[in-house]
C-alpha cells in the first residue's frame, strides 16, 4: 500500500519557524500547495494540539500533525517540513522537533493501510535524521518511498 500522495510542492526544506504553530502552518501550506487541503486545515491541526497537547510528537524529532477528516480536506495527502532550527512542541521526551509531517485524510475508512506505510518508513531509526538532513525535496521523497 503506497503512502498518501507526497508531491514535491508539499515539501519544504530548511524552513525557519520560531514556534510549533509556525511549523504546523508550514505543513498546512504544503498540503494546500499540493491540493490536498484548504487553507483552514492548518488551524484545525493547531487546534488538535491545543486541545490534546503535544502528543503528535510521536518519535524523537518528529511531529505528525493532522486533524480529522472534514470539509477542509480535499484529498488524501502528506506534507513534509524540515526546520533549519528545531522547535519545541512541549513534549516531555521527543522535543525538539526537526521534521514535521502534515497528514490529510479524506475518510477514516481505508486510511489505515496508507498510514501503516508511514510505520514502514519510520520504524527505520535512520529515517528521521536522514530527512532532517536532506538538501532537496527529491531526497525526502526517496527516503519516504524507501528507495534509499
Amino acid at each position: 500500500m503506497p503512502l498518501p500522495p507526497l508531491p514535491e510542492e508539499a515539501i519544504t526544506i530548511g524552513a525557519d519557524a520560531r514556534t510549533w504553530r509556525e511549523a504546523v502552518r508550514l505543513a498546512g501550506a504544503g498540503l494546500e500547495a499540493s491540493g490536498a487541503a484548504r487553507s483552514g486545515y492548518s488551524e484545525e491541526m493547531i487546534r488538535m494540539i491545543e486541545e490534546h497537547g503535544p502528543y503528535v510528537v510521536i518519535a524523537p524529532g518528529l511531529a505528525l500533525a493532522h486533524a480529522r477528516p472534514g470539509p477542509e480536506v480535499i484529498k488524501d495527502g502528506l506534507a513534509v517540513v524540515t526546520l533549519s532550527t528545531p522547535v519545541a512542541f512541549g513534549h516531555p521526551h521527543n522535543d525538539p522537533v526537526s521534521v514535521v509531517l502534515g497528514l490529510a485524510i479524506l475518510s477514516i475508512e481505508g486510511h489505515l493501510a496508507s498510514v501503516a506505510e508511514l510505520a514502514n518508513v519510520f520504524n527505520d531509526p535512520s529515517a528521521i535524521p536522514a530527512i532532517a538532513a536532506a538538501k532537496d525535496a527529491a531526497t525526502v521523497i526517496a527516503i519516504m518511498k524507501r528507495e534509499q
Binding site: 505528525l64 493532522h66 497528514l103 485524510i105 486510511h111 498510514v115
Partner: peptide, 19 residues
C-alpha cells in the same frame, strides 16, 4: 488512543500488531 483516531493511533495499532 489518540486525539483524532487517525494518524498516531493508527501507527500504534500497526506497530502493536507487528509486535
Amino acid at each position: 488512543i489518540c486525539g483524532a483516531g487517525i494518524g498516531s493511533s493508527s501507527i500504534l495499532k500497526v506497530n502493536a500488531e507487528r509486535v
